[in-house]
């Protein structure tokens, strides 16, 4: 029908080729698409569905026993003091962990980009090594170092402080958990900042130093403004990471003592472990919501510059 409007032969000839091309391309995409459908697309939609039901682990063989409960799970979450506490814990992890991670990463990137030659590669290797180190292994090392009689307290004892039992203290466990997060991730921030710094054209600095601008003013008026897109990208990336924090608290304290280090992700996992699949899905959707919000903010902030 539409073909009669335009020149018939070339269009008619191109169409089957286009369809064939699309089929070939989707054959290339098939393995990824299959895994994506099975393990990302369907689970995301299903999680939303589950969160509106009273699905329990024991219902998996009796799907008909599951009831639609609307937003009941979400209301239960809002009434659960431990969930609200876990949201605060997660926000604390983000609010303290992100600036610390970025601060260390940025300072080290500046130092490595200041024109030093000797040992530069070695330093970069050392600072990046935590990023690739297995978290289960590191968590064990930290437990060994932070136990009541451990190496950390030995140092404190040598300078006259009685060291506490870090991971058993409701006030001190969280700082240790955050420190592990920072240790594991500042290398990522450093590498991303290094890439950003190397993209700043060198002649801008030369011009500024001819105008008599010192190191500090160059940093404030040239480096920081030009690095803004990188800074935003790193902060959003880390925020999205840290909103989902699981490994560090699970392995160091399993959320304890008294829930003082339980994150939203850990709450989700504990609900799952208790067989409360509906509640677990609802809690996980709160994480998805937070992550999506942060990403939208990112796109809003980046768009006018890009």
């Amino acid at each position: 029908m539409t073909a009669t409007i335009g020149p018939t032969t070339p269009r008619g000839a191109r169409r089957p080729r286009g369809a064939r091309r699309t089929a070939v391309a989707w054959l290339f995409l098939a393995p990824f698409a299959l895994v994506f459908l099975l393990y990302t697309a369907i689970p995301t939609v299903a999680a939303l569905g589950f969160s509106l039901t009273d699905l329990r682990g024991t219902d998996l063989r009796h799907p008909l026993a599951v009831n639609f409960t609307g937003i009941h799970n979400y209301l239960r979450l809002l009434e659960d003091p431990s969930f609200l506490r876990d949201i605060l814990n997660t926000v604390l992890f983000v609010a303290v962990g992100v600036p610390l991670t970025m601060g260390f990463g940025f300072a080290l990137a500046l130092a490595l980009n200041s024109g030093i030659r000797r040992l530069r590669g070695t330093f970069r290797t050392v600072f990046f090594a935590p990023v690739v180190t297995n978290v289960v292994a590191v968590a064990m090392i930290w437990q060994y170092a932070f136990n009541a009689g451990g190496t950390v307290n030995k140092v404190l004892g040598a300078i006259g402080f009685a060291g506490p039992n870090w991971l058993d203290d409701t006030h001190l466990a969280m700082p240790v958990v955050i420190a592990l997060g920072v240790w594991r991730n500042f290398g990522i921030a450093m590498v991303l900042f290094l890439a950003g710094l190397q993209a700043v054209p060198q002649d801008v600095y030369e011009a500024a130093s001819l105008d008599g601008a010192g190191r500090w003013r160059q940093l404030r008026h040239i480096t920081l403004p030009l690095l803004m897109p990188t800074t935003l990208m790193v902060s959003v990336l880390l925020t999205v990471f840290y909103l989902q924090v699981f490994d560090e608290p699970y392995l160091l304290t399993n959320g304890g003592p008294l829930g003082s280090t339980e994150s939203v992700a850990l709450y989700t996992y504990h609900q799952f472990g208790a067989g409360e699949f509906g509640m677990s899905s609802a809690a996980s959707f709160v994480t998805l919501l937070l992550v999506t919000l942060v990403s939208i903010v990112q796109f809003r902030m980046l768009r006018p510059r890009a």
Binding site: G18, F36, I42, L243
Partner: peptide, 28 residues
């Protein structure tokens, strides 16, 4: 390659990188 729904396919790749593990692991 040039094909229908290419933007959707690329969107799926980006989305898959964003979806939190905790959201999908129960259904997985």
């Amino acid at each position: 390659l040039d094909f229908a729904a290419k933007r959707i396919a690329f969107g799926a790749v980006m989305a898959a990188m964003m979806v939190p593990f905790t959201t999908v692991f129960v259904t997985q």
